[in-house]
Structures are given as C-alpha cells and as structure tokens.
Nucleic acid binder design. Structure first.
Lengths: 218, 218
DNA sequence: AGATGATTGAAACAATTGTTTCAATCAAAA
DNA sequence: TTTTGATTGAAACAATTGTTTCAATCATCT
C-alpha cells in the first residue's frame, strides 16, 4: 500500500534520483526535463520516479525544497545576522554571501540555476519557498538597511532599496547568459567574483549613505 | 514551391499568427507553448504555422525579433542618446525608459515577458539579438557612466557599474514573481513605476558620484 | 467562364511524453 | 527453507506534441 515510506531511511536509488533530478531540472527546467533522462542519469529504471515520488511534479517539489535547504546550510547568514556588528560589515557580508550562493559552481551550482528558474517562471512550489526562505532573508536585509539610512524612509522606498541591492546580485544569475556573452571575465575566477561582490557592496553603501543628501538634482 | 513569399504583404492570417504567438510564447515560454494553442487563439488552422513559417522554431525567432524591434520603436533612446544633455539627465532618461520598456503592460507587455524569458533561458535566437540590440544599448550606458565617473576606472569595473544599474531595472521583470508576492504596491500604478524609476536613478547616481570618494570603510 | 496557384481545413502521422502494469528479483522474517 | 513484501525491469498505455498530407476552396488573371 505504501512501499516507499516503509523504508527506514532514504535509500541509495532514491538519493541518486534526487541528485540526478537536480542536475536535469537545473539544466533544462521542469518541462524540458524528461523523466527518462533523469532516470538514465541516476541509472535506475524509468518507473522509479513514480514509485519513489508519486509523480514528476512531486519529485520537482522535493528537489526544489532540498536545493533551498542545502544552499542555506552551506552559506548561512550568520555574520549578517550578528546585530552586534556594524551595519556596513553586515551588508558587505550579506551581499558576498548572496552572490556566492548564486554563483556557486563547485558544490553543485545547480542550486542557483534551479532557484533562478523558479523565480523567473514560478511553479506552485514557489509560494512555500517564499514563506520559508525569502521572507526571512528579506527581513534581515531590511533591518540592515534601516540601520544605514535611519528612519524617515517610507515602507515602499525601503522595499525599493532592498530590491536595488538584491537586483544587482540576481543580475549575475538571471542574466548570466548576457554576462557570458558580454563580459565573462568579471566572474571568471573566485577572485573576480569576490571583486564583484565588493563592487556591489561599495556601490550600494555609497548610494545608501549619500541618497538622502543629494535629494535635488544638479 | 514558395507559396508564402509570393504574397505582396504579410496577410491577415500571418499577422494574426504572429500576434497570437507573441501572447502564448510570452505566457508559457517556447516549449510549453503549443502550436495548436497558438493557432486556436489566432483562429486559423493548425497547419498554418508550418505553412507560413516553416516550423514552430522559425515562428519563435520571428516573434522574438519583432518584439525587440517594436519595443525599440516604441521606447527609443533619443533623449539618452543626446550627448549635448548633462549625463545625469541622460542616465535618468535611460533608466526610466528601460524600466518603462520592461514593465509595459498596455501596448502589449508581452514583449518584456518574452525578452526576459529569452535572457533567463536562451535559445539560439539570443545571440543575434545581443548583437543587434543589446550591445548598442550597453555602449550607450557605458558612455553615460564614463561621463559621470571620469577616467581611471578599469574596463571590468565599468562593466560592473553598468550591470549594477541594469540589474536594478531587470529585477522588476525577472523577479516579478517575487515582487508580486512581497511588495506589489511599488509598481502597481504608472505613478509608482515612475517613482521606482526615480529611485533607481537617484540610487545609482548617488553611488556613481560618491563611489571613488568613499574607498575606505567607515 | 476557365485555368492557375495560393490558401485553408480536417485528418493522419510519427515521435515523445508521464504514467501504469505486472512478472521477476531480492532481502529479511518466520 | 519458506514466505512475505518491497524493489526492479521491460514493456505497454494513453495523451500530447510538431509536422505532413491531400483534397476542397478561394482569388486572380487570361
């Protein structure tokens, strides 16, 4: 009646399936990925997806949740969360961490690709991820920004500030195709990625610090 | 042998097909869109796609090229190109224009969606579009930035500056799913979109102006 | 009117998809 | 060893896909 759950632990084929599915989904997206391809890479029978997960869609949901969990474990926002540190340091950390998460190709950069796909073309699984992962991260960033710009900023403008920072980071993932074709060198090596993170941090901090000062145009 | 081209002008069914294809491709993406759906919306026979265009892929290419052409016509960068204007004004114009293009829902906002899809998940058609549309626009932005920050900035950092500005704008298209769920009000009306464009311009100008000044930390 | 050739319509085709089926196999308990 | 139930494997299924076919229709020119 309920074969998969009778198992004490996720067995090797189930694990291999999840790993292969992450690869294929990240590379081709949900619809372009085929169950047969996933099973072939996992070296298991084509019926296994429907045996261990009840459908391709359920497999995708689980892969997506796992991707968020793993990137969060691998790049925890511990320093950015430390409210005893000065906000400049915390923002720098937040950005560097965010960018590293997005551009990670070592562990398995599939995570970033998968998440970018989900944002660009959401499935039903997105809402759950927003609640569990994105909202907390958003609140963290808003807190840091509030420390930097002080009070007197409307809620809408606080959101815009956050999006200006996040947007700069996401650019390197969502528009990776453009960067690869226009200026691949700026994220070619870990050192260059670090420089890029530093650039975004300095750019954003300069903006946050001098925004209220230069209200009027020249 | 060559029936479609014998026609003096693109006929109504061909036009309707292009229009319907833009809608469907923008809404569902290339692969999720079906030829039958496109033909149904255009109210033509299912074989018409292969009659007027030789395949679904060729139809997509033509739709994509048309989308870029039309947005360019509708939102020309005339003011941003006018090098007699001060660079602050030109940047503000560039950003407002860029954002308006991305968020246009009136004419047929399908353009923005379609282009965002193509960037996030490129097909073979992207390279041609980069050459014809993106590189010139990039050069324009680089020129404006150069005027604002002066010489002494490496080419890599010039690219990073451009991407920081473009990234802020693209955020509102690529991550529209997040904005709709987290803070839809900031682009709910044309007035709010205008405020958002103004925010990005002020944020970026403050950063560009004070970036070199604040090299060291606090 | 008649002929020509482009266009349309309905059906069929071939390939691919996610899913299901069911007998064969394996591991562990009795 | 026998039995039980989970797992695997190969095949088949049903639905959907882009594409092709071909006769019917339409517009245009002689």
């Amino acid at each position: 009646m309920n074969p998969p759950n009778t198992h004490p632990f996720p067995d090797p084929t189930r694990k291999r399936l999840l790993q292969a599915a992450l690869d294929v989904f990240a590379e081709k997206g949900f619809h372009d990925a085929t169950v047969r391809d996933i099973c072939a890479r996992a070296d298991v029978n084509a019926a296994s997806v429907n045996y261990y997960f009840r459908s391709k869609e359920a497999l995708y949901s689980e892969v997506l949740a796992a991707a968020f969990r793993e990137t969060h474990e691998r790049y925890p926002d511990t320093l950015a969360c430390d409210s005893s540190l000065p906000p400049e340091v915390r923002l720098r950390q937040f950005i560097a961490n965010f960018l590293a998460r997005l551009l990670d190709e070592t562990h398995l950069g599939r995570h970033g690709k998968l998440i970018a796909r989900e944002i660009a073309d959401p499935t039903a699984a997105l809402d759950q991820v927003i609640e569990s992962t994105m909202k907390p991260r958003c609140a963290l960033l808003q807190g840091i920004i509030a420390e930097l710009v002080g009070p007197g900023v409307s809620e809408a403008d606080m959101h815009r500030l956050g999006l200006s920072i996040v947007g700069q980071c996401l650019m390197y993932r969502h528009s990776r195709s453009l960067i690869d074709r226009l200026c691949p060198e700026i994220i070619a090596t870990p050192e260059e990625i670090e420089k890029t993170a530093e650039h975004i941090a300095r750019f954003s901090m300069a903006a946050l610090r001098h925004l209220s000062a230069g209200e009027a145009g020249p």
